[in-house]
């Protein structure tokens, strides 16, 4: 039997190769474009700036990645991030100790993840719809807590999270690296990680082979919720407090990061390493276009088109059309 490439011919092989490399090419092109058009883009200060800016998106999207590996979706991560940030800021405003504010926010993230998991796994709602409804609830509570205005969060630890250094590395970057390594170990080096890839590949097969699918899906939603809480600390440290609907743009960044992560893997599966690259890619796009003077709302258009192209190529690639 002839292989697919032989049947399709040599021209198709080149097309397949180029489309398979779409994401690295896009990344390289955008780097080239920005470094030519925006003179400050390639400076060391700006690179560090990108890494700091991207830290909360990275944590958020790595958490989302764990859910997406299971072939579930979580549209509520940005809303959970907004809500747990709001809880933290409001508690700090009410003179609660910093430690308790952080713990309560983390508990809120875990709890919201549990709600997501309950309605998706136990009840059986499509994950996109249940998490969408939860994001609606979260923004309702968030707006009620913030009373629709800006609430500052002043604490030593947040200033450290924003400006500090650990061993010469900026604190947010260090935090991202630690979280990334933990998730990487869990997903690539333990049997539970392998189980999760199995669930994402074929859930029915995973159930039949005796994997505790329900438990793992619960765990992944809870992990996503907790990661959103941790991201919220980086977020309120970065902007100095909570603002209503502050996390909206980062939902798109988190999804962009995950789809980029999917497209750079050869088997077209979601993976944390790719997601981290994707988060940096999203940060480069945001930073570069901001330096060029593009308004934040046009970022929606640019990133939306990038996501559509990447997903369209991945979909075709998986089907073997390209």
């Amino acid at each position: 039997m002839k292989s697919r490439i032989e049947v399709l011919g040599h021209g198709r092989k080149v097309v397949e190769y180029v489309f398979g490399l779409f994401t690295p090419i896009a990344l390289g092109l955008s780097l080239l474009l920005f470094s030519i058009l925006a003179p400050n883009f390639l400076s060391f200060a700006n690179m560090m700036n990108i890494l700091r800016q991207v830290s909360f998106v990275a944590v958020l999207s790595i958490g989302l990645c764990v859910v997406m590996i299971n072939n579930d979706f979580d549209l509520s991560v940005a809303a959970i991030m907004g809500l747990s940030g709001a809880i933290c800021s409001v508690m700090l405003k009410l003179d609660a100790p910093v430690f308790s504010a952080i713990v309560v926010s983390c508990i809120a993230g875990v709890f919201l993840g549990l709600i997501n998991a309950f309605f998706t796994v136990s009840i059986g709602i499509i994950s996109i719809l249940s998490t969408l409804a939860l994001s609606y609830m979260c923004s309702g509570i968030e707006l009620t807590l913030l009373k629709g205005t800006w609430v500052p969060a002043n604490a030593e630890i947040f200033i450290f999270l924003r400006d500090g250094n650990i061993l010469g590395v900026p604190t947010p970057v260090m935090l991202v690296v630690i979280i990334f390594l933990v998730y990487l170990y869990f997903l690539e080096r333990t049997k539970y990680g392998t189980y999760m890839y199995a669930i994402g590949g074929n859930m029915q097969a995973a159930i039949i082979s005796g994997i505790n699918v329900k438990l793992l899906r619960y765990v992944s939603f809870v992990v996503a919720g907790l990661s959103a809480s941790i991201a919220s600390f980086l977020f309120i440290a970065r902007i100095g407090g909570s603002t209503p609907h502050g996390g909206e743009l980062s939902l798109m960044d988190a999804f962009l990061a995950n789809f980029v992560g999917q497209s750079v893997s050869r088997q077209r599966v979601y993976n944390v390493t790719g997601t981290l690259i994707g988060a940096i890619f999203a940060g480069i796009l945001t930073n570069g276009f901001t330096l060029l003077g593009v308004h934040a709302f046009h970022m929606y258009l640019i990133k939306g088109v990038v996501i559509i192209v990447i997903v369209a190529i991945s979909t075709r690639y998986k089907r073997g059309v390209i």
Partner: peptide
């Protein structure tokens, strides 16, 4: 703001209801 919350809860419950109903007649939700 609270209306947002109440609507979110009711939509979640409605979706749960619809999914449970589908499960009962033996269809995948």
């Amino acid at each position: 703001y609270m209306q947002l919350f109440v609507k979110g809860v009711s939509i979640l419950l409605i979706l749960a209801f619809a999914a449970a109903g589908k499960k009962m007649i033996g269809e995948k939700a």
